[in-house]
Nucleic acid binder design. Sequence first.
DNA 1: CGGTTTTGACCCGCGC
DNA 2: GCGCGGGTCAAAACCG
Length: 284
Amino acid sequence: MDGKEKMDPTGSSWRLGGGDEFFFGSDKDSSILSEFVWNIPAESSGGFGDSDRIDSNFGGESSNDYVSVSAPQRTTTEQTAEEEKVEASVSWSSSEDKPEKSLASGDSSAKLPAETASKARKKVQKRIRQPRFAFVTKSEVDHLEDGYRWRKYGQKAVKNSPFPRSYYRCTNSKCIVKKRVERSSDDPSVVITTYEGQHCHHSVGYPRGGLISPDLASFASRLSPSVHYPAGLQISQENSLHIVQSQNVPAAGKIGEVQESISSQPQVDQGLLGDIVPSGMRNG
DNA sequence: CGGTTTTGACCCGCGC
DNA sequence: GCGCGGGTCAAAACCG
């Protein structure tokens, strides 16, 4: 049971999903966040799901990139009015993930009998890892509204944590985005949300200029290794992320502006308009 | 009635 | 090769 410790809760960084991603622990991020002066106007707390355009390419080419973004957030306070601000730490990572996930999606095989299904399952065992990023959020609600609709498809007890981990999948059949939600065993008030993949559609919400997770997602997804960001971030290519805090971020309540700045990077968004899926996956 | 959640079983990767 | 832990499936239950 304790033969293999995959995680290192005591470390300054956490390893998840086989060590693909790093992000700052709650204890650390608090200090980090304090260095990051991401001021989000209260007016922007209109809602959690206002991402308009989630279109960006994960740097699929880059082998190991780690990006981390930290930013104080405001919850939608749907049911947690006392939760004024949510501190979030975002980290993103990508690895050689091939979009052959369609196989596992079970598109070709319509409905197989239980027998065949189990067999088919054996064949379809290529678990492809999508680029993903996680962010730590201080919130009382574990499942934060992010503008997308999710369907829970599993829940598992986490080893070093008394809290279970929930698995969600985007309800959009064409969207392969998944996310995991779990509470930090170290700080129950912290929720760790891990997104995997990219939405190929717009959120169900509407643009309101709020800072919400999809925005962060899109934001983070645009980041490329060894690139300087207006947010004062610098990403190292050495499987470890470095946050070079230096000044206030211009994220004056609108990550979208930041996206604009970032979009000037190569291979970022080619005006795909939501079709971030690799050309190979795009089935007209 | 359709969509979502629950939950146990199954599968896979990894470390030993 | 084995055991463990994580991730996913799928049927049943649940809910609006």
